[in-house]
Design a protein around this nucleic acid. Structure first.
Length: 991
RNA sequence: GGGUGAUUAGCUCAGUGGUAGAGCGCUUCGUUCACAUCGAAGAUGUCGGGAGUUCGAAUCUCUCAUCACCCA
C-alpha cells in the first residue's frame, strides 16, 4: 500500500505518544547501555498553569537533550512536576468559590479550605501535563512530583514526601541560625493580604500627582521662602514663611508621618534641623531631621517621613531614630480607631475627628478626603501633575503597600557565599556567559529573603509560639505571654514541638498545654486566665513546680512558606530527599537546568543557595538560560495585547514537530526569538519533504528486507559521497548539541536533509535505481535506506513524531526510534575523492542549468555539449556520472571538438572547456551580459586576492595555510577569468 | 540614573580575525510517475556612523547614534 502524500500529524501524534508511554520508553534508565547518567529537572510549571510559548520553547530544548542522551545510551531521567503556586492557586480556587457565592473567610477551619484546593488540584491540576505530552515531552511521568505532596490533608495519590523535605530544611536552617523572624517592611499585597517578594512586584507607570502640603513650624520658627526669581531662575526676593512645604504622591500616609527630612547642607532649612513641625489632621509634633535622602533639587527639598509605609522613609527613620506608626489595615484601609501608636502624642480632639472622618476608609478614598480637608483648611500648597512608577502585585494587579509586619526571613547573606563560589570556580556554568553577571550582581547585593506568606495554601511554617519564661529570685518561674515577642519552638512535627515545650516549661506533659488555632485565641485565653490586660500575661509557677490550676497557651504560626522556598528544593526534593533514595544517589547532582532568564533570581540562585546549604553540593553543573519568545513584531506576548500565540493551536495547525523545529532553529543563544506562523509553516513543509523522500524510497523498493545497522560500502561515487555527507552532519549535530547550540543542529540537519539528500541524492539515485545494473540498484537501495535511517535518527530529538512514524513504516525494527542507537561514525566514512567528484558534478549541473535558464532554452529541450579540452580528472568525473549529468542538466551527449562553432554558450568549470552549442537559440547580447557580469565579479574577487598576495606583510605574517589557500584560489579564479575572456572574444566575432 | 544586549539582504535572523550567509518574501520559468506543503533559475548588502589595533575587521578596542530588556 503506497504511503500517504503527507504525514498526518493530528492523527499520529497521540497514537505515537501513547505507544512510547505504554512501552515505558521514558522511564528513568530506559534504554541505558552505559554507566553515565543524565538528569534534567523540569522547571516546575504552576499547577494552575497552561502551556504557553515559553513553556513550549523551554521544554522542547529539554526534550532534545533528553532524547539525545537516551538514544546515546545514558541512564536518563527527565524529572517532571508542578509547583503549588501559593497565591496563584489560592486565587484560582477563591475565584471558583466566588462563583458559588462563597468566600474563603466563610470557611471555619483552614483545613476545609485547603481540602477545596486539593479537590481543585485533583480535577484541574493535570492540564499542563497533558499539554506537555502533546508537545512530545519525554518526561518520566511515573515520577511526577508536586511541591505540596505529602502535606497534611493531601489526598490519596499525593503521598510523596516533598512536604517532609521542605519542613526539614526549614528546621535545619532555623537551627543553624540561617532563618529568623523579624518586624520589617515588606511588600504587602492588600488584595491577597499577604507579603510578597520583591520579585513578584512589577513597576507600573501611572499618571498621578505631587501634592504639596504645608506643615506648620512650631515655636515660631520660619524660613525664607522665595517669592521672585530672575529669568535665570535665581532668587531675587524672599519672605519669612511659618510652615514647611512637603511634596508627596501619597497624602494618605501622612497620618503615619513621624518626621520631615531636609538635606544637611540645604541653606534654606539648615537652621531648622532639630526643630519641629505640627502634623495637620492629628496635631502630632514631629522633628525636622537632617538626611541626605532629601534631595534639595527635588520638589521643595523637604520630605515627609513615614517609616511604616515607605521603604526609603524606613531607612531614614532607622538613621534618625524616628518612630514607625502603622496607620493601615491589611486591606490598605485607614486604621485609626484603637490604634495606640497613632494616637500617642497627638491632640485627642483631632484624633477623634480623624477617626470619625477617615477610619476604615480605603487608601484612595482617604487620599481624596485628606486633600479636600487640606484645601478647605488652607494647608494644601498646590498640586503638580506627576507621572511616576507605582509598584503593583504581579498577580493581584493592585498597588502594593510597604507594610510593617512580623515575617520570617532567610538570612541569605549567610548562605550566599557557596553559591557564588560554585559559579566563580566553574563548578556550575551559566550559559550564555553574560547571565553570570546578572547572577553575581544579584547575589552580591542580596537582601534578606522574606519567606512567610499570609496564605492558607502552602507549607505551614513549623513553628509554635508560647510564653517566655523568666526565673525569679525566689526560684519561681514567670511566664510572659507576648504576641509580638513570643517564645519560639521550631520542630518538624507538633509532637517534637510539644516535647520541646515540656522540657522548656518543665511541666509534666502535654496535658498542661492548651493549643489555639490563632494568636488572638491564645491572647484572649491568657488574658482571661491570668486577669492581665493586653498582650502580656504573667503565669507564675508554684514553688512545688506544678501548674495545675492553669494550662500554658500555645499556637502554631499560621503563615505558610513562600512557594519558591519549596521550589528551591526541587532538585533534591523530587529525588526523594530527605530519604537517601537510590535515585538521589544516582542522579544528583543533576546535569543541566534549562530555564528562562526571568527566573534566574527567583529560582536558579535560590536552588544554588539551598542545595549547597542543605546537602552541600551544587544542584546542576550547567544552567542554560534561554531567551523570551516574542511575537513577530518583537513584542512580548501578553494577553492584554492579544498577540499571544497558543502553542496548542499551532500544534493543531502545523503539528508538534513543526512547532518544535521552529523553536529549535530559532534558539540562537542569547537572542530573543520572534515567532511567526510563516516560519512554522516552512518547517512543517520540511517534515513533508522528509516524508516524501521516504515515500520515494519506499516506492522504489529501498526498504525491502531493510535492516537498520552498519553503513554499507558501496562502489558508486554518489553513494560513497552521500555516506560521507551523512557522517559530516552527524558530527556537526553532536558538536552543536554538546555546546547547546540547538539552532546549529537544526539548521545543519535542515540543510543536509533538504539540500543534500532531497535536492541531490534522491535525484542522483534515479538513473541508478531505474536504469542501473542489478549491483548498482542493490547498493543504491542499501545506501538510501541507511541514509534515510540516519536522517530519522538524527532528526528524532527535534522532530520525534514524524521520524518515529517513518521508522515504523519503513522497516522491521528491533527497537522503536526513541530508543534507536545514536551513531558514532565520523571522518572514516568521508571519501575525499567522491566528495571532489560529486561537487564537480553538482557545479557542472548548476552551471549548465544557469546558462540554459538565462539563454531562455525551453525547459524540456535537450542540448548537446562540446568540450575543447578536458583534463583526466574531469573526464573521469564525467564518465562516471554521465547518466546523472545528462538527466539533470538535459544534455544529450558530450562531444570533443577542436574548435567551438560560432554561437556557443560557455560553461565555466574546473578542468575543462565546455560549451553548449546554441546557435539559433542564443541571444548574443544576453550571453555577453551574462559573461561580463560573471567576469566583473571574478575580477573584483581577484583584485582582492592579488592585493593581499602582493603585500609582503601578508605573506610574512599570515599563517601559511591561509597564504596557500589564497594562492590556489587566485589561480583558479584566473583560469576561470581567462575562459570567460576567451568566450567573450568568440562572441565578439559573432556579433 | 545604573547595568546588559542589539543594530548584517525587503522581513526574521545566523555568522568570535582570512572568498558576506540562511529561511521567508519577491521576479521569471516549470503539471516528466517522492513532494505544488514542490522544482529550476534570478535580483537584492558602504555588515548603524566615525576613529583605532592588524598584513587583513561584520568579528577586537574606543566613540557617537538609535532601539530593546533588566535593576533603581
Amino acid at each position: 500500500m503506497p504511503m500517504e502524500k503527507t504525514f498526518n500529524a493530528a492523527e499520529a501524534e497521540a497514537r505515537l505518544y501513547d505507544a512510547w508511554e505504554k512501552a515505558g520508553c521514558f522511564t528513568a534508565g530506559a534504554n541505558a547501555s552505559r554507566p553515565e547518567t543524565f538528569c534534567i529537572m523540569i522547571p516546575p510549571p504552576n499547577v494552575t498553569g497552561s502551556l504557553h510559548m515559553g513553556h513550549a520553547f523551554n521544554n522542547t530544548l529539554q526534550d532534545i537533550l533528553v532524547r539525545w542522551h537516551r538514544m546515546r545510551g545514558f541512564d536518563t531521567l527527565w524529572q517532571p512536576g508542578q509547583d503549588h503556586a501559593g497565591i496563584a492557586t489560592q486565587m484560582v480556587v477563591e475565584r471558583e468559590l466566588a462563583k458559588q457565592g462563597i468566600s474563603r473567610r466563610d470557611f471555619k477551619r483552614r483545613e476545609d479550605f485547603v481540602a477545596k484546593v486539593w479537590e481543585w488540584k485533583q480535577q484541574s491540576g493535570g492540564t499542563i501535563i497533558n499539554q506537555l505530552k502533546r508537545l512530545g515531552a519525554s518526561c518520566d511521568w511515573s515520577r511526577n512530583a508536586f511541591t505540596m505532596s505529602g502535606a497534611p490533608g493531601a489526598p490519596a495519590g499525593e503521598e510523596g514526601n516533598f512536604h517532609d523535605a521542605v519542613i526539614k530544611v526549614f528546621v535545619d536552617l532555623y537551627t543553624k541560625g540561617f532563618i529568623y523572624r523579624g518586624k520589617r517592611l515588606v511588600n504587602w499585597d492588600p488584595h491577597f493580604e499577604t507579603a510578597i517578594s520583591d520579585l513578584e512586584v512589577e513597576q507600573v507607570e501611572v499618571d498621578g500627582a505631587m501634592w504639596r502640603l504645608r506643615y506648620p513650624l512650631e515655636d515660631g520658627a520660619t524660613w525664607d521662602r522665595p517669592t521672585e526669581w530672575d529669568e535665570d531662575g535665581n532668587v531675587t526676593a524672599t519672605e519669612p514663611c511659618p510652615y514647611l512645604v512637603v511634596a508627596t504622591t501619597r497624602p494618605e500616609t501622612m497620618l503615619g508621618d513621624t518626621g520631615v527630612a531636609v538635606h544637611p547642607e540645604d541653606p534654606r532649612y539648615r537652621h531648622l534641623i532639630g526643630k519641629t513641625v505640627r502634623l495637620p489632621l492629628c496635631g502630632r509634633s514631629i522633628p525636622i531631621v537632617a538626611d541626605e535622602y532629601a534631595d534639595p533639587a527635588k520638589g521643595t527639598g523637604a520630605v515627609k517621613i513615614t517609616p511604616a509605609h515607605d521603604f526609603n522613609d524606613w531607612e531614614v527613620g532607622q538613621r534618625a531614630g524616628l518612630r514607625a506608626i502603622n496607620v493601615m489595615t491589611t486591606r490598605a484601609a485607614m486604621w485609626l480607631r484603637d490604634n495606640r501608636d497613632f494616637a500617642e502624642g497627638c491632640d485627642p480632639d483631632l484624633v477623634a475627628k480623624a477617626i470619625e472622618r477617615l477610619d476604615g476608609a480605603d487608601r484612595y478614598a482617604a487620599r481624596e478626603a485628606i486633600i479636600n480637608e487640606a484645601t478647605d483648611d488652607g494647608w494644601l500648597d498646590g498640586i503638580d501633575p506627576d507621572r511616576h512608577m507605582v509598584p503593583h502585585g504581579d498577580r493581584s494587579k493592585v498597588a502594593i503597600e510597604p507594610y510593617l509586619t512580623d515575617q520570617w526571613f532567610v538570612d541569605t547573606a549567610k548562605i550566599v557565599e557557596p553559591a557564588l563560589a560554585a559559579v566563580r570556580e566553574g563548578r556550575t556554568k551559566i550559559l550564555p556567559e553574560q547571565h553570570e553577571k546578572v547572577y553575581f550582581h544579584w547575589l552580591e547585593n542580596i537582601e534578606p529573603w522574606c519567606i512567610s506568606r499570609q496564605l492558607w495554601w502552602g507549607h505551614q511554617i513549623p513553628v509554635w509560639y508560647g510564653p517566655r519564661k523568666t526565673v525569679l529570685e525566689d526560684g519561681r518561674t514567670r511566664l510572659s505571654f507576648s504576641i509580638s515577642n513570643p517564645k519560639t519552638f521550631c520542630a518538624a512535627s507538633k509532637d517534637e514541638a510539644i516535647s520541646q515545650m515540656v522540657e522548656y516549661y518543665q511541666i509534666a506533659g502535654p496535658e498542661e498545654l492548651e493549643e489555639f488555632s490563632a494568636p488572638a485565641g491564645a491572647r484572649d485565653f491568657a488574658e482571661a486566665s491570668f486577669g492581665t490586660t493586653f498582650l502580656v500575661g504573667e503565669i507564675e509557677r508554684r514553688s512545688d513546680g506544678g501548674t495545675k490550676e492553669f494550662r500554658i497557651p500555645y499556637y502554631r504560626d499560621p503563615d505558610v512558606l513562600d512557594t519558591w522556598f519549596s521550589s528551591g528544593l526541587w532538585p533534591i526534593g523530587t529525588l526523594g530527599w530527605p530519604e537517601d533514595t537510590p535515585e538521589l544517589q544516582r542522579y544528583f547532582p543533576t546535569d543541566v537546568l534549562i530555564t528562562g532568564f526571568d527566573i534566574i533570581f527567583f529560582w536558579v540562585a535560590r536552588m544554588m543557595m539551598m542545595q549547597l546549604a542543605v546537602v552541600n553540593d551544587i544542584p546542576f553543573h550547567t544552567v542554560y538560560v534561554h531567551a523570551l519568545v516574542r511575537d513577530e513584531k518583537g513584542k512580548k506576548m501578553s494577553k492584554s495585547l492579544g498577540n499571544v500565540l497558543d502553542p496548542l493551536e499551532l500544534i493543531d495547525e502545523f503539528g508538534a514537530d513543526a512547532v518544535r523545529f521552529t523553536l529549535t532553529a530559532m534558539a540562537a543563544m542569547g537572542r530573543d526569538l520572534k515567532l511567526s506562523t510563516a516560519r512554522i509553516a516552512g518547517y512543517r513543509n520540511f517534515g513533508t519533504k522528509l516524508w516524501n523522500a521516504a515515500r520515494f524510497a519506499e516506492m522504489n523498493g529501498v526498504f525491502e528486507n531493510h535492516k537498520s545497522g552498519t553503513p554499507p560500502a558501496p562502489a558508486e561515487t554518489v553513494n560513497r559521497w552521500i555516506i560521507g555527507e551523512t557522517a559530516r552532519v552527524r558530527q556537526t549535530v553532536d558538536d552543536a548539541l554538546a555546546n547547546y547550540r540547538f539552532n546549529d543542529a537544526a539548521n545543519a540537519l535542515y540543510a543536509f536533509v533538504w539540500g543534500k539528500v532531497c535536492d541531490w541524492y534522491v535525484e542522483f539515485s534515479k538513473p541508478l535505481l531505474l536504469d542501473g545494473t542489478q549491483a548498482q540498484q542493490a547498493e543504491t537501495r542499501a545506501t538510501m535506506a541507511w541514509v534515510l535511517d540516519q536522517c530519522l535518527i538524527l532528526l528524532h530529538p527535534i522532530m520525534p513524531f514524524v521520524t518515529e512514524e517513518l521508522w515504523t513504516i519503513t522497516g522491521a525494527r528491533e527497537k522503536m526510534l526513541v530508543h534507536a542507537d545514536w551513531p558514532t561514525y565520523g571522518a572514516e566514512l568521508i571519501d575525499a575523492e567522491a566528495d571532489r567528484e560529486m561537487n564537480w558534478v553538482i557545479d557542472l549541473i548548476e552551471e549548465i542549468r544557469s546558462a540554459r535558464a538565462q539563454m531562455g532554452v525551453p525547459a524540456g529541450a535537450q542540448t548537446p555539449m562540446l568540450a575543447t579540452q578536458i583534463d583526466p580528472a574531469a573526464r573521469t568525473a564525467w564518465d562516471r556520472n554521465e547518466a546523472l549529468i545528462r538527466k539533470l542538466a538535459r544534455v544529450e551527449k558530450l562531444s570533443e571538438v577542436n574548435d567551438l562553432p560560432k554561437g556557443c554558450v560557455t560553461i565555466a568549470i574546473e578542468g575543462a572547456h565546455l560549451a553548449l552549442p546554441l546557435a539559433g537559440i542564443i541571444d548574443v547580447a544576453a550571453e555577453k551580459t551574462r559573461l561580463e557580469k560573471s567576469l566583473a565579479k571574478l575580477d573584483k574577487e581577484l583584485a582582492g586576492l592579488m592585493g593581499r598576495l602582493k603585500n609582503p606583510k601578508f605573506i610574512d605574517s599570515a599563517p601559511e595555510d591561509v597564504v596557500e589557500e589564497t594562492r590556489d584560489l587566485a589561480e583558479a579564479k584566473q583560469d576561470e577569468a581567462a575562459k570567460l575572456r576567451a568566450a567573450l572574444g568568440r562572441l565578439a566575432e559573432l556579433g
